[in-house]
Design a binder for these strands. Structure first.
Lengths: 356, 356
DNA sequence: TTGTAAGCGTTATCAC
DNA sequence: GTGATAACGCTTACAA
C-alpha cells in the first residue's frame, strides 16, 4: 500500500489517493451513500440526478476505485464466493469439473475458492471449516466419498452445499453426477451385441458410489442378456495404473481368459495397456476393451479406444446452478433432495472386436 | 443462518447460538479481546492465565466457533488469500500448476481464488481487478502472454505479483518458468546425435515467449552442430491438435521430407499422430518425433514417446514462495526482478530412430 | 435528491 | 492479566 501511494503521487502530484469510498466522497463533495448507490446500480431507485451519476462514475474510473468486497461482505453477510473442494485438482476429470464450476460461477458474479482434499477425509473436513470461516456463500464438494456424515451435518445447519461426482445413493444434499449405472450397462450391452460372452471388469475403489453403480450396471447388463456373472472376472480395487496393470495380468492367466474387459477408469486402462504390451497381446484382437472416461488422447491410442464419456463440464455447471438456487432462497428448501444424473455417451471406436 | 439457529436450538435447548466472538465473550464472561488473543496464539504474549486459555479454547470448540476471516481481513488489511489466473484450467499442464500453487499456499495458511482467463487478454484484465477488489494478498498469473503492460502497471503500484510459464524475456515482475530454450536444445541435440540432419519444428503461437525460446533452442542446436536452419522446416502457429495435423501434412509433402520433428506442445503432437496414421507412416520408423510436455499417456503411445518434461508442479510451488516473499516484505523490494528457470528433462523412449 | 449515523466481526491501542 | 473502545470500508434505515 505504501508503494502504491508513492507511485501514484509521483505520476501526478495533484491526484489524491483514493483508497475507499470516503476518499472519493470527499473529493466529489458527495456522501459515501450516494457513491455506493450509483456504483451499485441503485441510482434510479433513489432518483439520483444524471449529473451526479456521471460525476461519480467518472471519478471512480479515473481514480481506479475498486470497491472493497471484503467490507461489503462483512456488511451484507454475502461474499460472492463459493468454495470448491475436489479430491485431486490435477486429475483431468476434476480439472474439467472445476472449469465448469468456475465459468458458471463467474457468469453469476461469484468467485471460486479452490481446495484440494488430496482424497483425504480429514483434510476435507478441515477445508470445509476453512471455507466456512471465509464465509463463502456455498460449497460444492466432490467428496472423498466414504463418509458423508460431516457434510450432512453442515448442510443441515443451513449452509448451501452441492455434491458432485461421488454422490451417496440416498441423501438430502442436492447432488449431480453421471449415470454411472447406465454408462457401464450400455458398454457391456454393446460388447455382448458384438458377440462377447466372457466379459471381465476391473474396478476402482469398491466403497465409492460411482464404482458401485458401474459394477451394478455391468452385472445387470450380463443378467439381462442371460449371461452368468462370474465373480472371478470382477477384479481390482483402485483407480490407478498399477491396479489396472496387476489385474490385467491376473485376468489373462485365467483359463480361458475373458474376451473383453470393461475398465472403470482411464488410469486403470493405462495399466491394462501396459500389461497387454508386455504380454504381446493386442487390444481389439486378442481381447476387447472399453474404458470409462473419454480423454483427449483416447482416439490416438492404438487402436482408437471405445470409451464411456462423462459430461463433466456440465456437471460443474449444473452444480453451480443447484447451489445458486439454495443461496438465493436461504429460507426455502431450494433444491433439497434433488439428485441429477447426467447421461453418459458410449463413444464407439475400434477397441472392441466383433466376435460373430 | 436462520436454518442454522433453528437446527441448533432444536438439538440442545440450553446451548445458545455462537455467531461471533462477542456471543462467546458474553457466555464466558470474558472480553472479546481475550478470546481473540487466545485463539490467535497470543496468550503467552499477554500473559493470559492458563485457566482462561483453557476455558476459551474449550468453549470455542464446543460451540463450533469459527472466527470470521472476512471481518479479520477488513481489520488487518490482509485476507490470507492469493489469486491465481490461468489461461485454461482444464488443460492438464495448468491443472498441475494450480495443484502446486494450492498445496504450497495452503501450507502457509493461504487460500486460493482460482480464475480462468480463457486465453483472453481483456478477461485477464478484468480478473485482476476483480481479485484486487477481493483484496487478495497477492496474485499469481499464467499470463495470456502477449501484452504485459497492465500487469506491470499493477505490479508497480505495489501489488505482489508473480508470473508463471509465459514470462517476458525482460521484466521486473518476479517470474518462474521452464527453461524452454534448453528443453528444445537438448531434444534437437539428441536427435542430431542419433544421426538426424533434416529436423523440422512445429510451433505454437509465435508471439508467446515460451514458444520463442523453444524455437531459439531448436535453431541454436542445429547451428552448433553445423547444420543449416531451413525456414521451410519451421511451421505451425498454434498449440492445437488441428495445427499439428495440418502442418504434419505440409511437412510430409516436402521433398525430401524431414526425418525428424520436434513438436512444441502435446496437442500439436496428437495432431501429428493423427496425420501420420492417415498417411500410414509410423513414428520411430518413417519419421522420428520428440514432443514437449510429458503426459501420463506418453509412455503408452505406440511407440512410447520421447518427451521434454517440464516441472510444472514445482513451478506452481516456487511461484507461491516468490509471492510470499513479496507479501511478507511489503516495503522492501522482495523478489523484484527475480527470474527462475526450471530445468526440463528429456525423457528418452522409442520415438526417435537411430539413423547411424 | 442527498446525507447522517449505526453496525457488520474483528483486532490494536490504551487503560487499569 | 484483562477489558473498553475505536477503527477497518461498506450498506442501510432513517432524516431532511
Amino acid at each position: 500500500m505504501k508503494n502504491r501511494q508513492q507511485q501514484e503521487s509521483k505520476n501526478n502530484e495533484s491526484q489524491p489517493v483514493v483508497k475507499n469510498i470516503n476518499d472519493l466522497a470527499k473529493i466529489l463533495n458527495v456522501s459515501a451513500t450516494t457513491i455506493s448507490r450509483v456504483l451499485n446500480g441503485k441510482a434510479e431507485k433513489f432518483r439520483i440526478s444524471k449529473k451526479t451519476q456521471i460525476i461519480v462514475m467518472d471519478a471512480a474510473a479515473k481514480h481506479n476505485y475498486l470497491a472493497n468486497k471484503i467490507a461489503r461482505g462483512l456488511k451484507m453477510d454475502r461474499t460472492d464466493t463459493i468454495g470448491l473442494i475436489l479430491p485431486d485438482i490435477s486429475y483431468p476429470f476434476f480439472a474439467v469439473i472445476s472449469q465448469g464450476v468456475e465459468s458458471e460461477a463467474r457468469k453469476f458474479g461469484f468467485s471460486l475458492i479452490l481446495c484440494d482434499s488430496d482424497d483425504d477425509e480429514s483434510k476435507e473436513k478441515e477445508l470445509i471449516n476453512l471455507l466456512l470461516s471465509y464465509r463463502v456463500d456455498g460449497i460444492i464438494i466432490g467428496p472423498v466419498g466414504k463418509d458423508y456424515e460431516f457434510i450432512s451435518h453442515i448442510y443441515n445447519s443451513g449452509i448451501p452445499i452441492v455434491l458432485v461426482d461421488r454422490c451417496p445413493t440416498v441423501t438430502e444434499i442436492p447432488n449431480v453426477s453421471s449415470d454411472n449405472y447406465q454408462g457401464a450397462y450400455d458398454a457391456v450391452n454393446y460388447m455382448i451385441s458384438r458377440g462377447h460372452k466372457r466379459i471381465a471388469c476391473i474396478e476402482g475403489s469398491p466403497d465409492l458410489p460411482t464404482n458401485y453403480d458401474r459394477v451394478r450396471g455391468y452385472k445387470d447388463a450380463l443378467k439381462n442378456n442371460n449371461l452368468q456373472v462370474d465373480k472371478n472376472l470382477i477384479v481390482g480395487n483402485y483407480h490407478s495404473i498399477e491396479n489396472g496393470y496387476k489385474n490385467m495380468h491376473i485376468l489373462m492367466n485365467i483359463d480361458p481368459p475373458p474376451s473383453a474387459i470393461i475398465s472403470l477408469s482411464n488410469r486403470i486402462t493405462l495399466g491394462i495397456l501396459k500389461a497387454a504390451k508386455e504380454k504381446r497381446i493386442t487390444v481389439g484382437r486378442e481381447f476387447s476393451l472399453i474404458s470409462f472416461d473419454e480423454q483427449l488422447y483416447s482416439q490416438f491410442l492404438e487402436p482408437p479406444m471405445t470409451t464411456i464419456s462423462q459430461k463433466n463440464r456440465e456437471m460443474g455447471q449444473l452444480a453451480v446452478d443447484l447451489l445458486l438456487r439454495n443461496i438465493n432462497n436461504r429460507n426455502e428448501s431450494g433444491s433439497k433432495g434433488l439428485s441429477m444424473k447426467l447421461k453418459t455417451d458410449l463413444i464407439i471406436r475400434e477397441s472392441v472386436r466383433r466376435m460373430i
